[in-house]
């Protein structure tokens, strides 16, 4: 604007020209940086995600087995109609849903509670913090085996402790409902510390001055927690919720080691069913269709949640 208002002299024009050039150069260097910095990630993700997902959609319309790759028969939507009319699939969705609900609820409650205690400064906090975080450092397979070992109905430590206080022994992994709770207990054991970690980080990010102001107004500890701490860290807690919701929804490793899908096929998650269809039965076409259904649900779910998150964090 300033350049346009100035009298049109050769010097003025030259200066305006130079300024414009500099601006252009800066912008193009910005462009170059955006392009250069994003392209490696984009290349890897396109190759490792976009390409497989498109192929998956393609395969889902075929009767196709990875073992006999020569015979691919187009079947249209048959894979989908077969899957969606299969009552077993609905059972898996119901089981997965129950598992997700129990896990996420327990983990959020425990995580926020423990995180709130850990944000205070006390002696030995760093060591206690690190020890409490240990379950999430373990491999899910090890976690599965460890809990399977502890929950063994005959020589497991859990049943030993139960019977030593006079409670009846439970066949944890032999009954559907008990196995559901066992899996949820193992998943919660592993991941509640993760929520606690994120919660602690979020709680410590709240400026002390806000608490001090509340103190002056004579706010109770409960008021501090529910009216300041929770709302002010809501976006981070919501991210934690999204991550756990999606991760427990796609849980696979834990069930491989803990229950092997049993008893029967009653503790098979949807992910487990995909793996079984694809790599035990080698019904690749059907597995692709099931994977597409799973992808649609998870992408839809995360789209809704992330949109909500963006709205939420705009308020801050």
């Amino acid at each position: 604007m300033a350049a346009a208002d100035a009298p049109i002299t050769p010097e003025g024009q030259a200066a305006a020209h130079a300024a414009r050039q500099a601006k252009l150069r800066k912008r193009s260097s910005g462009r170059l940086m955006i392009f250069g910095f994003l392209s490696p990630s984009l290349a890897i993700l396109l190759f490792m995600v976009a390409y497989p997902v498109f192929s998956l959609v393609y395969y889902s319309f075929f009767n196709f087995s990875a073992l006999r790759q020569a015979t691919m028969k187009p079947v249209g939507l048959k894979n989908y109609t077969f899957l969606l009319s299969d009552p077993e699939l609905w059972e898996r969705f119901v089981f997965t849903g129950k598992f997700v609900f129990i896990c996420v609820t327990l983990q959020m409650l425990i995580g926020i509670f423990v995180g709130y205690q850990l944000q205070k400064n006390f002696r030995g906090r760093d060591v206690i913090f690190t020890i409490l975080m240990m379950p999430m450092m373990l491999s899910p397979v090890v976690v599965g085996f460890l809990w399977r070992y502890m929950l063994n109905s005959e020589w497991g430590i859990v049943n030993f402790l139960l019977s030593s206080v006079g409670l009846p022994k439970v066949d944890w992994l032999g009954q559907t409902n008990a196995a559901l709770w066992a899996a949820a207990a193992a998943d919660t054991w592993m991941w509640a510390p993760f929520i606690a970690l994120l919660a602690t980080a979020a709680f410590r990010g709240i400026p002390e001055t806000i608490y001090e102001a509340a103190e002056v107004d004579g706010a109770s500890p409960a008021y501090r927690f529910f009216r300041i701490t929770l709302p002010m860290s809501a976006p981070v807690l919501f991210i934690a919720l999204i991550l756990r919701l999606i991760d427990s929804f796609k849980q696979y490793d834990l069930f491989v080691a803990l229950t092997g899908g049993g008893p029967g096929s009653s503790t098979e998650t949807v992910s487990y069913a995909v793996a079984k269809t694809a790599f035990s039965y080698f019904y690749t076409g059907e597995a692709s269709a099931l994977a597409v259904i799973l992808l649609l649900i998870i992408t839809g779910l995360s789209l809704i949640l992330v949109r909500h998150l963006t709205k939420m964090s705009e308020k801050y």
Partner: peptide, 14 residues
């Protein structure tokens, strides 16, 4: 972010 959400078994089929 969606790559973080992706169930491993889904892409594993391919």
């Amino acid at each position: 972010l969606s790559t973080r959400m992706l169930p491993p078994v889904a892409v594993l089929v391919f």
